[in-house]
């Protein structure tokens, strides 16, 4: 029994310390799992200041500024999000809390400070624009891995290229999407969505990656709607991981009293 534990933990240590695993040894499931953890579960918790610049077809810009706090209840499992809006003025001090579940719809709350109102929001459609940008709710909090069938179509020097097909095509607007996952960091560097006619219509791309607290992190990305001609640039600043966020930060108490971690 003891021996088994030692072997298991040795194996675990080897697994965790092996920096690069050869493609042949990684299954599609391994790749997608590691990509999911790298992009949505970095550290046990974290914070970032986010600026989104939305450019419409006529070149007009609108800006959204918010702070996002995240805490993982378990790696790859349930998560808590706290989004505190700073700009524009009509949403200033609004707070959006999400309790992300894997087995049921997420719980979402929105706090409207001018009315001191805590509104609960139906969270059935995750493929809706997030704050009017080209990012969707699902881009922010992650898409369930088992919602798609994954297929490794190509392995290059730098990327694993995965084609993903939805299991429930009626629930989404795409017919499939292709992910370019960086072999070193497992961060998805590019995602191209095909519409129901197989035509490219949406691209999400990481433009810059930096390492914070030892964790490679996308710091600049864009989402482009190729049909509408609109795009959103997202910039992430003041990134910190493992800051010791308590679970109660993600409750009604902190809607009315934003925690220290969201202030400038």
């Amino acid at each position: 029994m003891k021996l088994k534990r030692i072997i298991l933990s040795t194996l675990f240590v080897i697994m965790m310390t092996t920096p690069l695993v050869h493609a042949e040894e990684l299954s599609v499931d391994d790749i997608i799992n590691r990509a999911n953890l790298a992009s949505y579960y970095a550290g046990d918790d974290g914070r970032a200041d986010v600026t989104m610049t939305i450019t419409d077809t006529q070149g007009r810009e609108r800006k959204r500024e918010f702070v996002i706090l995240r805490k993982d209840k378990e790696n790859g499992g349930e998560q808590l999000f706290f989004v505190y809006f700073k700009k524009p003025s009509d949403v200033r001090k609004m707070v959006f809390i999400v309790h992300k579940h894997l087995d049921r719809d997420d719980d979402r709350w929105l706090y409207l400070p001018a009315l001191d109102l805590v509104k609960r929001i139906a969270a059935s459609d995750k493929r809706t624009s997030f704050v009017g940008s080209n990012y969707l709710y699902e881009d922010v909090s992650g898409r369930r891995i088992d919602a798609d069938r994954h297929e490794l179509t190509q392995t290059t020097d730098q990327f694993y290229v995965l084609k993903n097909t939805p299991r429930q095509p009626g629930e989404v607007e795409f017919s499939s999407y292709t992910l370019w996952i960086d072999k070193a960091t497992f961060l998805p560097m590019k995602t191209v969505y095909l519409d129901k006619n197989g035509k490219e219509y949406r691209v999400v791309e990481a433009l810059e990656v930096q390492t914070f607290d030892g964790i490679p992190t996308v710091t600049v990305s864009t989402a482009t709607d190729l049909i509408a001609g609109t795009s959103t640039l997202a910039e992430f600043k003041s990134i910190h991981y493992n800051i010791g966020l308590k679970e109660d930060v993600f409750t009604e108490r902190y809607l009315r009293r934003p925690p220290r971690e969201v202030r400038r």
């Binding site: 719809d105 139906a122 969270a123 059935s124």
Partner: peptide
């Protein structure tokens, strides 16, 4: 009481 129900929110 307020709760999620049938893909919506019931109160």
């Amino acid at each position: 009481a307020r709760m999620p129900l049938w893909g919506g929110i019931c109160n």
